[in-house]
Simulated assay, not measured.
Amino acid sequence: MTQLDIAQHDNATLETAPTRYVEGQGIRFAYRRLGPATGTPLVLLQHFSGNIDAWDPAVVNALAIHRPVIAFDNAGVGRSTGQTPDNVEAMARDAVAFIHLLGFSEVDLLGFSLGGCIAQQIAAEHGQLVRKLILVGTAPKGGEEHLLAVLQEAFARTDAPDPRLPLFFTKSSASQSAGLAFLKRTKLRREDRDTDNGNKVTDPQAKALITWCATPDPEHAILRAINQPVLVVSGSHDTMLPASNAYAIFKQLSNAQLALYPDSGHGALFQHHAMFVSHVRTFLDAQPATA
């Protein structure tokens, strides 16, 4: 890595970072790297239907001040090639392949919504790869989801400027105002924006999320295999993946913290972005307790 590359990593934002590519196992992964060149990388696992440019710059840029942050498109999403799998296990395998292609031996994971399911699968199967885990607006295997009903209701809101406004935010004026600000931030990048691949992504992703929640895990095998420190975050009024999921995850983990954000829906991390970033920084920077 040249000094120029390091400087670019240090100064780049989600809006300005070049989209890079790495190829392996028949997939060409698109990604952006922000932040310093050294430190434990924080890899972002995106929500249902989302690509790199669906992340909130207010979250990503702030997290990248002190650590490397990697936003990427998993197989078939955005500018990544390959086919989007219809199950979480295969999505996790593809994400691990991407992490290994970048040469990382240890990472932190931030999984949002469907990305949180993938993060659980990775942490359970690859204990040496994952140092710490942040699960946001997600569900355990066998958890509660209302994906199709909430999507149908959101797309019926023809008065909304973007389906994410009713999907991610509550009906309160404060939440709606925060939602409009979030939508504005996601459109700040003008050039080299990521692509939306439509039903080729959303159909298999919907099947993966619905199947994950419809598959019983009475022994909580996935969660009990996760020994890493975990920060669990949810909005108080998440209609897609209710906050009861967050508490269910928290109860079964051996080393977890739980944060519920007020008057917020599925996009709680975007509505309360400053508080979320503060919580994540504190969590990731905390040293392990000593006996």
Rank of each mutant, 00 (worst) to 15 (best):
L45F: 04
P57M: 00
D73S: 07
A30N: 04
H66A: 15
S49T: 13
Y31S: 05
R32A: 05
T81K: 02
H47N: 08
D86W: 04
F48V: 00
F29C: 02
S80M: 10
R79C: 12
I65E: 14
T84I: 03
T38S: 15
V60I: 15
L42Y: 06
A58C: 11
I70G: 09
S80A: 13
A58K: 07
D86L: 08
T38Y: 11
P57I: 01
V69T: 12
I65Q: 11
G39F: 08
G78Q: 01
L42F: 04
N51F: 11
N61F: 11
D73Y: 02
I70M: 13
T40K: 12
V69D: 05
A37R: 13
V69E: 00
D86F: 07
A62V: 06
I65D: 12
G78T: 02
D53L: 04
P85S: 04
V43M: 11
V60T: 12
A37N: 07
L44N: 05
D56T: 10
G35V: 01
P85Y: 06
P36E: 08
W55G: 00
A71C: 15
G78H: 00
A64V: 09
V77H: 06
P85K: 07
Q83F: 10
R67L: 14
P41V: 06
R32Q: 08
F29P: 01
G82S: 13
G76T: 04
A54K: 09
T38G: 13
G39H: 13
F72T: 06
D86S: 15
Q25M: 12
R67Q: 14
A54N: 13
G39D: 12
A54M: 11
P85V: 06
L63K: 04
H47P: 10
T40W: 05
V69P: 03
W55N: 03
S80Y: 06
L44K: 08
P36V: 11
P41E: 08
L63C: 09
P41Q: 10
I65C: 13
Y31E: 05
L63F: 11
A75P: 09
A30M: 08
A62K: 10
A54C: 15
G82E: 12
H47Q: 08
I65K: 15
N74D: 10
V43E: 08
I52L: 06
P57E: 02
P57N: 01
L34S: 02
P41S: 06
H47E: 07
W55K: 03
Q83W: 09
A75C: 14
T40Q: 14
T81W: 08
R32V: 07
L34H: 03
G82I: 10
R32M: 02
V77I: 15
Q83T: 13
V69H: 04
P68Q: 05
T40H: 04
L63I: 09
F48S: 02
I70R: 03
R79H: 11
F29E: 02
T81L: 01
L45A: 09
R33T: 06
P57G: 00
R67N: 14
V59F: 06
P85D: 07
I52A: 00
D86I: 02
P85N: 14
H66D: 15
